[in-house]
Simulated scan of single mutants.
Amino acid sequence: MTLDTPQAGTRVERLTVHEALQRLEHERASRLAQLRALDEAGPDAGEQVSVQADTVRQVLAEVEAAFARVQDGSYGLCRTCSEPIPVERLEILPHTRFCVPCRRTDV
């Protein structure tokens, strides 16, 4: 099974479900390691560490939501325009829900 995403011109690059899951697993492992490191700083580490931990938890929630999108077949499709998200963007942000043009207008 593949997830199709357009590239320049008419060529379509295929992202397999396995590749998507690998990228998401890597992202989850990285964020969990970050969270452990922040938690090791302890409760006296200050507000900045608390804010960073909250941000990492939010990204983890987005990664988990991306796993659900893989399962329901909507992974790799922009939530705004429904167009495929380019593979290059998914490589950088495997949990993204938006293509670049829609993300720019969403901010």
Rank of each mutant, 00 (worst) to 15 (best):
E25P: 05
V56I: 11
Q7E: 05
Q52D: 01
A37N: 07
Q48P: 10
A33Q: 04
G9Q: 01
D54V: 11
G42D: 08
L38A: 12
D54S: 14
P6T: 07
A20I: 00
R14P: 04
H18C: 07
A37V: 05
L15M: 10
S50P: 03
L21I: 15
Q22E: 07
L32W: 05
L32Q: 14
A45Y: 04
E13G: 02
P43L: 04
P6D: 00
P6R: 04
E25W: 10
E47I: 09
Q7D: 06
T5Q: 03
S50D: 13
V56M: 02
R31S: 12
T10L: 12
H26L: 05
E27M: 05
T10C: 06
L32E: 10
R14L: 13
R57M: 07
L24I: 02
A53G: 05
L21V: 07
A41P: 00
E13M: 15
E27Q: 13
Q52M: 14
A41L: 08
L32A: 15
R31L: 12
T55L: 11
D44H: 08
Q52H: 07
E27Y: 04
R36N: 13
V56P: 00
A41T: 07
A45E: 01
A29Q: 15
E27H: 05
E19W: 02
V12Y: 05
A33K: 02
Q48A: 07
E25M: 11
A20T: 00
R57Q: 11
Q48L: 15
T55R: 05
T5I: 02
Q52C: 14
L21G: 06
R36Q: 09
V49P: 02
G9T: 02
Q34G: 07
H26F: 03
R57L: 13
H18Y: 13
E19A: 02
V56N: 00
S30D: 04
A8C: 06
D39V: 13
A45W: 09
R23E: 02
V17W: 02
A37E: 15
S50V: 12
Q48E: 13
V49W: 13
A33T: 13
T5M: 09
S30V: 07
H26D: 15
V17M: 03
R31H: 15
E13D: 07
V49I: 12
L21R: 11
E25F: 09
G46F: 09
G9N: 05
E40S: 12
E40N: 10
H18T: 10
Q48G: 12
A37L: 09
R31I: 03
E40K: 09
A41R: 08
Q7G: 12
G42M: 01
L32C: 03
H26T: 03
L15Y: 05
E40Q: 06
Q48Y: 08
R28N: 00
E47N: 06
Q52K: 15
A33L: 06
R36S: 15
R14W: 03
V12R: 01
L35T: 10
T16Q: 08
A37S: 11
T10V: 11
R57E: 14
L32M: 11
R23F: 08
